[in-house]
Design a protein around this nucleic acid. Structure first.
Length: 442
RNA sequence: GGCCCCAUCGUCUAGCCUGGUCCAGGACACAUGGUUCUCAGCCAUGGAACACCGGUUCAAAUCCGGUUGGGGCUACCA
């Protein structure tokens, strides 16, 4: 049975690149009816933090990636030390300054990468360098091979060693990780050999880069999954976008159901070249998912953002929020965009920018505004349809172009030049607010 | 520097394995037009790429070699 793992280090929040690695592992496991395990690599006791660990677990769940097992390397130190001691007793490793090192043997190491094919390394290139960058030479004048640290001088195990022991102990069949680990692979193979263990299969994913072509960093944009959540991105949109980075279902589809991705996923079809992370495309995908959402469900997702902004939607009619959301869901690419665009519905008072006032709410509009508010006031059945009828009548009577009144009225009602249809906006605001804002406008 | 990986529109990619169906398809972004009370949306249209050089072949985006360019690693971090 296929068994894969995602092994984050809790020295920071779940990185968008880490999430992609996790996703491809998860996708592969699901597509093979295999298992996906999570291994917290917290061997660096100094830098590992509980809050990071909690956040990683939370983000994994939020993205919808469930795991079959959860392990902590910090609880497995005894095992690592025992294995290191075993290698020492077998003469394959030795101790020096309190650390345990594996003797590197001269050989050619071939790994078969599921994505890249055969990769060959020559351990004679693994040279021990002095501080000035020049190699140490032995008595024969050959460069000295660099031995791999298994256990550090402080007794804590080194990354590559833990990784090998755990992947083997946890019966990992496929190691799917970032390209930055390619050069760790031969070192790990050396360890598998020394321990007499069979290495798993490897697949190295292309890296994700920032818009500047360099490493994805905070400087070039958000890197933590939690940041994207706070920016109003939907987990399914992030997952959808991430799987498009380095993989394609091959049928020109961009919006992909997770289930169909699981069905079509093939590790061999993963791209070899690094991909640039595009905020624009992520945003577009997010908008697509927002458009597809049921307005009520979408309203629930927007509530935390309203709460955070201190917007009171609870005193309004219970159905109002969903109604507003429905009107806006085609025009908000992220959840966060809702407030600046639709917030006016929930405020008692709106403040209209001076330049809009001067441009649209001029004194000559006063009669039309009065007429409109008076006629609306006496409507017994106020909705988009009756509001429009009332409006059209006035425009006709006054013999003006409807645009001449539409725009000023929109400003008066929403404090914005843009928005959904004016009459739907009126219905949403309700008769009282509509009348009140019309009267106060000029 | 050394070792390793990579190279199709600005970006993500399809095609490459199994050469001809590709004067290279889709998406984002951009531009133009249509719809409309504005914006968004939607619809239509457009510009935009096989890094370069050489080889193999009747035929190369596709196979091979080199060059250039980009990236990764080079820690008793993970």
């Amino acid at each position: 049975m296929v068994k894969v793992r995602f092994a984050p280090s809790p020295t920071g929040y779940l990185h968008i690149g880490g999430a992609r690695t996790a996703l491809f592992n998860w996708l592969y496991a699901k597509s093979q009816q295999g298992q996906f395990i999570l291994r917290i690599e917290d061997t660096d006791l100094e830098r590992s933090k509980k809050e990071y660990e909690d956040e990683i677990l939370f983000s994994m769940k939020w993205l919808g990636m469930d795991w079959d097992e959860l392990h902590y390397q910090s609880k497995r130190f005894d095992l690592y030390r025992a294995k290191a001691a075993q290698l020492v007793s077998e003469g394959k490793a030795y101790q020096e300054n309190g650390a345990t090192l594996l003797k590197t043997t001269k050989q050619e190491i071939k790994i078969f990468d599921l994505i890249r094919g055969e990769i060959t390394f020559d351990t004679t290139n693994f040279i021990s360098l002095k501080e000035d960058g020049t190699p140490f030479f032995n008595a024969q004048g050959e460069p000295v091979l660099k031995d791999e640290v298994l256990i550090k001088h402080d007794g804590s195990p080194a990354y590559n060693f833990c990784c090998v022991i755990d992947d083997s102990a946890m019966e990992i069949t496929h190691v799917i990780r970032g390209e930055d680990h390619i050069s760790n692979t031969p070192k790990q193979i050396l360890m598998y050999q020394a321990l007499g263990l069979k290495p798993p299969k490897f697949a190295h994913l292309p890296l994700i880069m920032g818009e500047d072509g360099g490493r994805l960093s905070k400087r070039t944009g958000a890197v933590a999954v939690s940041d994207y959540r706070k920016m109003g991105f939907l987990p399914e949109a992030i997952v959808n976008y991430l799987m498009l980075l380095g993989w394609s279902p091959g049928n020109n589809q961009e919006i992909i159901e997770l289930l169909s991705a699981v069905k079509n996923f093939s590790i061999k079809k993963v791209n070899k070249a690094a991909a640039v992370f595009s905020m624009e495309k992520l945003t577009w995908i997010n908008g697509e998912y927002i458009k597809k959402k049921d307005p009520k469900a979408l309203a629930e997702l927007i509530k935390p953002f309203l709460d955070e902004a201190g917007i009171n939607y609870k005193d309004k009619a219970p159905a109002l929020l969903a109604q507003v959301v429905k009107l806006y869901q085609k025009r908000i690419p992220t959840l966060k965009d809702f407030i600046p665009r639709a917030g006016y519905v929930f405020y008692d008072e709106i403040s209209i920018p001076l330049e809009l006032k001067e441009k649209y709410l001029t004194a000559d509009k006063k009669p039309a505004f009065n007429l409109l508010s008076e006629n609306i006031k006496i409507l017994s059945d106020f909705n988009a349809k009756t509001a429009e009828e009332t409006f059209r009548e006035i425009v006709k009577d006054l013999n003006i172009d409807s645009a001449e009144l539409v725009h000023p009225v929109r400003i008066a009602l929403t404090a914005s030049e843009v928005g959904p249809g004016l009459f739907e906006t009126m219905e949403m605001l309700g008769k009282n607010l509509t009348v009140k804002r019309l009267q106060q406008a000029i």
